[in-house]
Design a protein around this nucleic acid. Structure first.
Lengths: 233, 233
DNA sequence: CAGTGGTCTAGACCACAAG
DNA sequence: TTGTGGTCTAGACCACTGG
């Protein structure tokens, strides 16, 4: 008999994953419906439902009403990146974090920045450049613009004590954002700040953060060579 | 009255997120327990539970038995990267995909590779180099090693018809993996293949894939300059 | 110990979409 | 039309952990 008599949705999940990995259920194949699996596993349909939803979320199953549940043809792999506060990231490496504010000014945004932030070029925004260090070695250079129309408190905050990076995480009521990574050759200025040769390959992270339809902040981070973005898949 | 009388867990989720974003519930603050919210929202506790679990998964809440549910202090932002098949990625850009196998050989792995794959240097593995094109323009260069002890079918497969990249997605019973991104300067060989100047900044992706404790494949992808990894947050 | 979230159940109804 | 997953409910018990 195949009666496995299992009671937790985690058990059901394990069994389902095992059948997929072992190819007992092959890519594209229709698996039994929830009611049938509930009988087989000796549990309620809701329990099977919970398990199958989790497995489908992870990309192993495609589920459609009436059509049933199939093993995904091309298990879409999803990698979850945790975006930490830079200070924490450095401290987790066992190094000492520090930062220096290199530039702070209220100014009209460059047109490129205004366009990305979808605000008028006439409106003044706060521009802050910060260099982050790990054990006195430059770790990343941060170029940030803050929409002070939305975050006026930023004008009265001392970012030498707490970095903008960290202040925003706690003070910006962000709802969503966009993130992009790319590689770029360091120009003379950036190379100098990061203490590397001009032309070195640099990992660049660009991020915009929105609250509803309003842009809160735009930031570009340039990581010193050797920086690596890791994730499990 | 605060009685919102709502019935779907998505409604509860929206309302909870609204309260967090509007700072009605502030970071670190304890929110009412599930039973109380169920009464307030006029729904079952299970419905509130489902909503709060989803919000907590997204990083906005910290939940602990007995201690209750609190608004996260530092909402840990998680970005979900979808790792597509290169062909699909290119086709979604509206371009024509093609690829060329530049090298294919059964050989002893370099010690660096053997170490990463945790296999013996004496054991032969399949090494394949593929260049991926978008509309005839080099898009990415793929350097891959396959553990043929685990995937002997790879020896009899023609990777000029279907790329290794795509074949593996459908044929490797992978269970987990590691992914890392970094920036690197193109050496002469890579620059030549990608049609760029030597020294150009290149985004490099390194990936290992495991089935239980066995390494299935190791791959390095070098993306032509301009490539950008995007994600919502 | 007692309060909280975590989960399971049996049953019900609904929403969607394939045939 | 009808089979499938999606969800809700009321009630129950459990697991963890703070006090």
């Amino acid at each position: 008999m195949t009666d496995t008599t299992v009671n937790s949705w985690l058990d059901v999940q394990s069994e389902v994953l095992a059948r997929i990995h072992s190819r007992k259920w092959k890519p594209g194949e229709l698996i039994p419906n929830e009611a049938e699996l509930a009988v087989e596993f000796g549990c309620a349909r809701a329990t099977v439902n919970r398990a199958l939803q989790a497995v489908a979320d992870a990309g192993w199953l495609d589920r459609r009403r009436k059509a049933g549940t199939r093993v995904a043809m091309h298990p879409q792999r999803k990698a979850v990146l945790n975006i930490p506060i830079i200070r924490k990231e450095i401290e987790e490496l066992g190094k000492v974090y520090s930062h220096k504010v290199l530039h702070r000014a209220l100014a009209n945004p460059l047109s490129k920045v205004a366009a990305q932030m979808k605000i008028s070029e006439d409106r003044e925004i706060l521009e802050i450049h910060t260099l982050h260090f790990a054990d006195e070695t430059p770790y990343a250079f941060e170029e940030r613009w803050i929409n002070t129309g939305f975050l006026p408190e930023a004008l009265n905050t001392d970012f030498t004590a707490i970095s903008v990076n960290e202040w925003l995480v706690s003070n910006a009521p962000l709802t969503e954002g966009r993130l992009s990574f790319s590689a770029t050759n360091a120009d003379d200025r950036h190379a100098g700040m990061l203490g590397v040769k001009s032309g070195s390959a640099i990992l660049r992270m660009n991020r915009t953060t929105w609250h509803n339809e309003i842009n809160i902040t735009l930031v570009t981070l340039l990581f010193a060579p050797g920086y690596q973005l890791d994730t499990l898949i």
